[in-house]
């Protein structure tokens, strides 16, 4: 890796807008694509994709925002959600890859693993785990998140991605 490689950045309004729209979608119409009552977590997908693009540090901050957003919307488990999302986005940011806007395989794999990690961390830090059968739900949600990754990732790289030397 060359030292003068331009640093990828995301436009903050685009990321925040994406998260708000994602949250609005998953609190309204996304139950239509649920499998066995499990629906995708688009806010987490945005956070993981953002983490993958901008790296672990900024990814952690974006992940924390995502978790807080979900927590506030849910009215509970703000800390657990914030911590788990921040950690998962941090981990997604540690994936050493060049950002290739047209390649969605790496983001899909990252989102799948990142979602599983977020679930695991949430399971550990939540004061009481509010769902039964966490493994089935975690796997299903991770798979759904993975399927929703290409459009969100491509949208983020298309409208939110900038480079700084």
């Amino acid at each position: 890796m060359s030292l003068d490689r331009p640093t990828p950045r995301l436009r903050l309004p685009i990321v925040i807008g994406a998260m708000i729209i994602a949250l609005a979608l998953q609190t309204t119409v996304l139950h239509a694509v649920s499998i066995g009552g499990v629906k995708p977590d688009l806010v987490l997908v945005v956070a993981l994709c953002a983490g993958l693009i901008v790296g672990p540090g900024t990814g952690a901050l974006i992940g924390a925002c995502a978790g807080l957003l979900e927590g506030y919307a849910q009215g509970a488990h703000i800390g657990s959600l914030g911590l788990s999302r921040a950690a998962a986005a941090f981990l997604a940011g540690t994936v050493e890859t060049h950002v290739m806007p047209d390649n969605v395989i790496v983001p899909m794999a990252t989102v799948f693993l990142g979602s599983l990690a977020a679930h695991a961390i949430y399971f550990v830090v939540a004061p009481e785990f509010p769902i039964a059968r966490p493994l089935r739900i975690g796997m299903t949600e991770s798979l759904l998140n993975m399927l929703f990754t290409p459009p969100l990732y491509l949208a983020l790289t298309r409208w939110g991605l900038t480079y700084r030397r």
Binding site: P56, G57, T58, A60, L61, G63, A64, G67, L68, I78, G79, G82, L83, A86, A87, F90
Partner: peptide, 11 residues
């Protein structure tokens, strides 16, 4: 530092 900052904000 950013990770810690994020966690601190969350907490």
């Amino acid at each position: 530092v950013r990770l810690l900052l994020a966690l601190l904000i969350v907490v």
